[in-house]
Design a protein around this nucleic acid. Structure first.
Length: 318
DNA sequence: AACGAATCCAACCGCTCCTCC
DNA sequence: AGGAGGAGCGGTTGGATTCGT
């Protein structure tokens, strides 16, 4: 645990050793079978970990940092429930906590608040975060405001640990929500008159791995755009190639996917004025480029039929 | 079983914004 | 107008946990 100065570190080390020794006396196997024991471990370990920077507030020094103990949680929760939030600066003193107000506010908003929804994010929530992030960027608090029960911190963490990587794997830039430039080149090449040749090569037993990977990448992008594999890959790819600067919403419109189709809850979102304006401005983007004639034509030729066939994709990926 | 790497997530930090005087 | 204090936000950190070898 980081300490603010050397003196605190020395005191903290002593406390840490005591705490560790106390911890060692606990039978871990038994402790794990008992909630009470877990709390005891948590408390002792917590004391050991976080005592270092803490000193008596009356001595006019640092407040406690690090993990919150169940006791502290209880004090804060009871105080806020009884008196309301009021001034966070005064709450620690009034609630009998040796914490700074900021820490109390964070603990309450991210953990103790009664309306917090915990547990894994659902697929719908994931889609919602992606869509909101494409509209709002890293405005985590604004995104959290559209997702009752979820905190900005939780959403931010989930984005950084899961969704960002997921988009990258799909070839989508998580900042711009657009296909990466390299992928646009690929898509363009797939739409060029020799697209059929590419496809033919891909189906050839001698096909090079790069072609298969490219096709798989395209499929991933389409799935992200549409939420299903039912949309014509040609139409979607044509839209991407025709409007490389478009974001996901533009592209969805370009290929005639209803805006709520990837996430039905989106349509019923409680939008504040700011968010509504942002969305409407997005909607008023230069009219989405109509899918090029080439794409329309190709959906009728032999290659197009293959593209239209969702089993076709399944086969390729498998 | 042991170890290191990778991942997760609660909590902190520094900054900006807002309100009040 | 501008300074002070408080609240809130986004980025980062680091300990705990999980995964892979």
């Amino acid at each position: 645990m980081a300490t603010e100065d050397g003196g605190e570190m020395a005191e903290g080390f002593e406390a840490s050793v005591e705490g560790r020794d106390a911890l060692l006396e606990i039978d871990v196997a038994v402790a794990r079978n008992s909630l009470r024991a877990i709390e005891h471990v948590w408390f002792v370990a917590g004391e050991a970990m976080v005592r270092s920077p803490a000193r008596d507030e009356a001595a006019g020094a640092a407040v406690k940092k690090g993990p919150w103990t169940p006791e502290e949680d209880q004090k804060l929760a009871e105080y806020v429930e009884k008196h309301g939030r009021g001034s966070w600066q005064r709450i620690p003193k009034l609630a009998g906590l040796n914490r700074c107000g900021k820490s109390c506010r964070l603990r309450w908003t991210n953990y103790l608040r009664p309306d917090i929804k915990r547990g894994k994010f659902t697929d719908e929530e994931e889609q919602l975060i992606i869509r909101l992030h494409s509209l709002l960027g890293n405005k985590w608090s604004s995104i959290a405001a559209k997702m009752p029960g979820r905190t900005d911190n939780e959403i931010k963490n989930y984005w950084n640990t899961h969704l960002r990587k997921k988009l990258l794997r799909m070839g989508i830039d998580p900042v711009t929500h657009r296909p990466a430039p390299a992928n646009l080149n690929l898509l363009s090449s797939l739409l060029c008159p020799s697209a059929a040749t590419h496809l033919g090569n891909a189906l050839d037993p001698q096909v090079d791995v790069a072609h298969l990977l490219k096709l798989q990448l395209l499929q991933s992008i389409l799935q992200l755009l549409t939420g299903s594999s039912a949309t014509s890959p040609v139409a979607a790819a044509a839209a991407i190639a025709a409007a490389p600067n478009a974001n996901l919403l533009d592209l969805q419109r370009s290929i005639n996917i209803p805006l709520g189709s990837t996430n039905h809850s989106m349509n019923s979102l409680p939008m504040d004025e700011e968010a509504s304006m942002e969305i409407s401005s997005t909607n008023s983007f230069p009219a989405p480029a109509p899918a090029p004639e080439q794409a329309e034509n190709s959906s009728t030729d032999a290659t197009g039929e293959a593209w239209e066939d969702s089993d076709f994709w399944k086969d390729i990926i498998e």
